[in-house]
Amino acid sequence: MVDVREWSRVDTARLLRVPGVDDDKYSRGVVALRTGSNAYPGAAVLGVEAAWRAGAGFVRFVGEDRAADAVIARRPETVAARDVGRTRVDSWVIGSGTDAAERAAVESAALSDILSGSVPVVVDAGGLDLAPGATAPLVVTPHAGEFARLREQLALATHGVRDRVADVAETAHALDCVVLLKGAKTLVAAPDELVISISSAPGWLATAGAGDVLAGVLGALLAGNPGMSKAQVAAAAAWLHGHAATLASGAEAGWPGHPIVALDVAEALPAAIEDLLS
């Protein structure tokens, strides 16, 4: 039996860092994203938007030309280039809006370099197949289908009775990293720790691109909270993401709310942060 802890609003607020008079754009956290593709440039836009809106002081983008053009058109504050140069990076986000089956050898090599470094990496979607064997501190963020494929890659058995808590704990142990399993009830597990459960999101959050937004939020909170438990940072990112969706959809105080798109969630992040800090 795996113990489960329910994550709360108060827990999340503890990990929202308010910049002080001595902070600058670097001390607030530098997030680098290697996401999106010419086929799926929107994923890059959503992740970058979310990283900025969740409080990053500096956001770098490294990706294909069409994705980079879309990012700059939406968020001109972003520095887009073929690499990060000598800029320090406090967290990476990779994989969103990419397809492992279409990945070129040069891209695999670049991602492998990131995954063998010392900087925390959020690994989403098309980067998940590279997580086994990585030595960087990871937070992997699969949805249910990606999680099943990841477990198959790890040769972990499929249980006759579905048990998401046991499965996410087992997967975190096998990968030796934090696993954030997305769903109506999101679960976060780290090796040999309690599993954290997050249930702050309305049903309207089940929309295309929401995971790209979550990856950007997580990148920003990891960059802004060095030295903190990555499982707790991941739980805070998931709770904040869900709360932003609640505000964006109007699903508060018993109201059913209304449909939203992923960009609505990213745009609601500042209001969600203000609400949590008030």
Rank of each mutant, 00 (worst) to 15 (best):
I198F: 01
G133D: 14
D23M: 04
A50W: 02
W255K: 14
Y26N: 12
L111F: 04
K25Q: 13
D69E: 15
A262C: 12
G55M: 07
G203W: 09
A235S: 12
A155C: 07
L181T: 02
A100M: 05
T12W: 05
W92V: 03
Y40K: 00
V84K: 01
P226Q: 13
G257E: 14
A251K: 09
D90S: 14
W7S: 09
A51G: 11
A166N: 05
I196W: 11
G36W: 06
G57C: 10
P270I: 05
G57L: 03
G57S: 09
C177L: 04
E170L: 02
F61W: 04
H243Q: 10
S8L: 07
A39Q: 15
A268L: 06
A148Q: 13
E252M: 08
H143Q: 10
L221H: 11
A223G: 08
E146I: 01
A238F: 05
D275K: 10
W239S: 06
T207G: 06
L221T: 02
L277I: 00
V122Y: 07
L180M: 05
Y26V: 03
T35F: 06
A131S: 15
L194S: 14
G97K: 05
A220H: 09
G227C: 02
G29V: 00
P202V: 09
D167T: 05
A215V: 00
A51C: 09
A231D: 15
V119H: 04
G29M: 03
V121A: 12
G242P: 03
V93F: 04
G85L: 00
V121K: 10
A131P: 02
D176H: 07
R34F: 02
D99F: 10
L46N: 08
T207Q: 14
G224M: 12
A231I: 01
G209Y: 09
V179N: 10
G257T: 07
R9H: 14
T171N: 08
I72Y: 04
G203Q: 06
R5D: 04
G29P: 03
W204R: 10
E193G: 04
L194F: 12
E6G: 02
T12Y: 03
A13V: 08
